[in-house]
Design a protein around this nucleic acid. Structure first.
Length: 344
DNA sequence: AAGACGGGGAC
DNA sequence: GTCCCAGTCTT
């Protein structure tokens, strides 16, 4: 056992946060927590984890649920493919594997929605398999500690960090070691304003001695945002409105929305009315900013004839049943505002 | 190897 | 505004 590993575990046992998925050994719940926490901060995922455990206490109850129920519970968390894959995998485990969660890294890795990080996390946390789990926190911690400037989002970087993480891994207690590495990155070796003064490794930290902490970890890509223009139509029909289920490989797949036409540019209400052959009235405009695209949304009152002019299948939903349908936050916020207005 | 995929927290 | 978050899948 290395000196580093001992110091890390000592720190972890004193300073670790008390989190609900840490007090269980059930691989189902650990799996659930790991999927929820992918690209998601603990504070944001906590309430979702509690609601999922409450609603689906085991893999069979999750498998039995409809996808709409699962997506509704996931609403607001983003990256909805996580929810769809979670559901698919739950059904696979419940039926094909008789409810028995796979117990090795290689078998866990085969499951849909589970990649190298999550397979290492579950296999080490639940089954004591010595696999290094490398998430964003660990990349940051190791890059600074060892002064590695190789970009973490390249094949070369992934290999280099995987090797270093394996060297550092405490193979006697891989589960606690992995959690400690992650926790140290989250609480001490933070992205902004890391607590270098209070860091128990600052004597050994290459980046600290070279004053390059703020440069690490290095990344190669810079993501670009794309502008999109969504025109939504609120079409009321005797206490009901039309909804449409999104399909195709696009954002918000399988979530519901108001009937929609997407345009290349901003379109004036008069122009839109002309193209649709019926008058539409602008209700609200909203700029919905995501990591990789900006949705410029316009919401219109429209007549039922608009639905006939658009392609796609629509369902007429009573206002008191809308709450059962999963929506993007953009549409959910609009509907919340409209319903509040209607109740005034 | 490079993009696509959400939403919110922290600064 | 910027960057990041217990990453994975598709092309």
């Amino acid at each position: 056992m290395t000196d580093f590993g001992i110091k890390l575990l000592q720190w972890y046992h004193v300073y670790k946060r008390s989190l609900p998925w840490r007090s269980v050994n059930d691989p189902y719940k650990v799996w659930l927590s790991e999927i929820i926490l992918q690209q998601t901060q603990v504070v944001q995922g906590l309430a979702y984890y509690e609601r999922f455990v409450q609603e689906f206490p085991d893999v069979h109850s999750l498998a039995m649920a409809s996808e709409e129920k699962v997506l509704k519970l996931w609403q607001g968390l983003g990256y909805y493919s996580r929810a769809r894959n979670l559901h698919t995998t739950a059904r696979f485990i419940s039926t094909e594997l008789k409810g028995i969660f796979p117990s090795t890294y290689n078998d866990i890795l085969k499951l849909k929605g589970i990649g190298p990080y999550t397979a290492a996390a579950i296999s080490s946390f639940c089954f004591g398999e010595p696999r290094a789990a490398i998430d964003g926190n660990v990349y940051r911690f190791i890059s600074r500690l060892k002064g590695i400037h190789t970009p973490i989002d390249t094949t070369e970087g992934k290999k280099e960090f995987a090797l270093m993480a394996e060297v550092l891994l405490n193979k006697k207690e891989p589960g606690d070691h992995n959690q400690a590495m992650i926790e140290y990155g989250a609480l001490v070796c933070k992205p902004a304003n890391p607590v270098c003064n209070g860091c128990i490794f600052n004597d050994d930290c290459i980046a600290f001695s070279q004053k390059t902490v703020s440069e690490l970890p290095a990344k190669s890509k810079k993501l670009k945002q794309r502008q999109r223009y969504f025109n939504y139509f609120l079409i009321e029909n005797e206490g009901a409105i039309y909804l449409e289920k999104r399909s195709g490989n696009d954002i918000w797949k399988n979530l519901y929305q108001l009937p929609l036409t997407e345009t290349e540019h901003e379109v004036a209400p008069e122009e839109l009315s002309g193209e649709l052959g019926t008058e539409v009235v602008l209700i609200a405009q909203k700029k919905h900013i995501l990591s990789h695209q900006v949705i410029n949304a316009s919401f219109y009152f429209a007549d039922k004839s608009v639905v006939n002019g658009l392609d796609g299948g629509y369902v007429l939903v009573n206002l008191n049943e809308i709450k059962n349908y999963p929506f993007s936050q953009l549409v959910a916020n609009f509907l919340d505002e409209r319903i509040r207005v209607r109740q005034d």
